[in-house]
Simulated scan of single mutants.
Amino acid sequence: MKQYQLKEVSKAKLKILEKYFPAWARILGSRNPILVFVDCFAGAGRYPGGEEGSPLLILQKARDTIQDFKSSLTILVIFVEKNKTSAKHLKANIPKDLPESLKVAVFNEDAHDFVPKLLEAIPRGMPAFFFIDPYGHPLTIPVMNQILSRPRTEILLNLMWYAINMHLSNPRTRQAIDKMFGHSDWYGQPFMRARQYERENQFVDYFLSQLEAHYKLKFRIRFSPEDDVPGGWHRTKYYLIHLSNHPKAALLMKEVMWSLGDEMGTFDFSARPQKRLFPQTPQVDELIQYLQQHYVGSGRVLTFGELREETWELPFIRKHYHKAITQLEGEGKVWIERMKSQRTGIRDRNKLHFVTEA
């Protein structure tokens, strides 16, 4: 019998979670005594091949974070798993030596019904991170919007495009899609008449338009060679979508996702990097050109952090902005108002004065 191994596309998903959670916890934990993490479709804690799943990964990262805070921070980790056997295995897989300030609860419940009740129990204003990673349909959009309506709360969503696409035109699953959207208007949308990539792109755009988050960052995951799907390397398996209402959360997730694609900055992963004649990784020169077109000559004054927040949708991260602004400073197109104790470098609070046109 062939031994199951965790697929590379699943590893990419876990890498994003593994890198983002500690940074999120450190930032929010510096201002809040209690943080909440909810894994809505937790599974058994380990994959059949023995590899650690999201629950064990998060517990280790939470343990490390609490040690850094020297027990001044409490992290409440909530695992929700519908399957009774998986929930039982998950409880058995949870380490017995967790620190006292790392609280863990496992609920053998259907997340679709349980999460609305859970939201009533979590104090409003307490920072919370929801990981929604189903096989099939996610939580309904009305429930996700309930989550997003809460301050300092964000979502990392696995949108299983491949599975959902098979259901869109099936009359037997229409009621389930109605429930996912919270209405039946989706059935009359243009994507229902479109095909292939046009259908996919229109659906994802429509789906995101229904979510009440200011910042929506998506990372495309294609089928990997291990999936053995015809033409799979260029077909989408799912999207990882980060949803938040704070620009710093979006910028932080962009830093995490940027390096994990087949090519850096493409937000697209297949576990089969292609050798392209023309690389697709965004270049600093492109950012400089954008800044020259939209900021240089405007006379605008804003901080380095505000510039990054205003342009968060561009496929660039902090190091690119630093290089671009440094070059423009050398050309006399912007001058940087640094703090008295700061001679060089660029910090988020430094004011950028873009020159006016002569």
Rank of each mutant, 00 (worst) to 15 (best):
I177Q: 10
R193P: 00
M144F: 14
A358Q: 03
K82V: 14
I317A: 12
R272E: 10
V104K: 01
L102V: 14
K179G: 00
S298D: 13
P127Y: 02
R220F: 00
S209P: 04
L35A: 07
F37N: 00
M160T: 01
I177M: 08
F219W: 03
F181C: 13
R300W: 05
R349S: 14
K351Y: 15
Q60G: 10
Y295V: 14
E329N: 03
Q283M: 00
A176D: 05
L14S: 08
R318N: 05
K333I: 09
A271V: 11
V80G: 11
Y295M: 14
F21M: 11
A87K: 01
V229M: 07
D268L: 03
V301Q: 05
M126F: 07
P22Y: 07
K82N: 12
M126C: 04
G332T: 12
F69N: 12
N93Q: 02
K19I: 13
R349G: 04
L159N: 00
L59F: 09
Y47T: 08
K319E: 13
F21Q: 03
Y20K: 09
K117R: 09
P190Y: 01
I241E: 05
K323Q: 14
A105M: 15
P33R: 11
S270D: 10
D262W: 01
F69D: 13
S54K: 11
L291P: 10
E310C: 08
H112Y: 01
F129H: 12
I221Q: 01
A87L: 09
L14D: 04
H242S: 08
K323P: 01
I221Y: 01
P116Y: 15
I122T: 01
T85L: 03
L352K: 07
E263P: 13
T85N: 02
N350G: 15
A194Y: 05
N201R: 00
E226A: 12
K237T: 02
T85R: 05
I288K: 01
K237F: 02
H137K: 03
I66T: 10
E18F: 08
T140N: 09
F316C: 06
V256N: 02
L56I: 10
R349V: 13
F129W: 02
L73R: 08
K91T: 10
R308N: 04
R220G: 04
R150F: 12
E310F: 14
Y295H: 10
G265Y: 07
A324V: 15
Y4S: 13
P315L: 06
V38Y: 04
L352C: 12
F130I: 09
D64M: 09
A358I: 08
K218Q: 06
K96S: 14
E331D: 15
K7P: 00
E226R: 02
G305D: 12
P22N: 09
F37M: 05
Q189M: 09
I75K: 05
D185F: 15
K19W: 12
R63K: 04
F269T: 02
I317W: 05
L252D: 01
L156V: 13
T173K: 03
F130K: 07
P279T: 01
H214F: 13
L328R: 04
D268I: 07
S54Q: 06
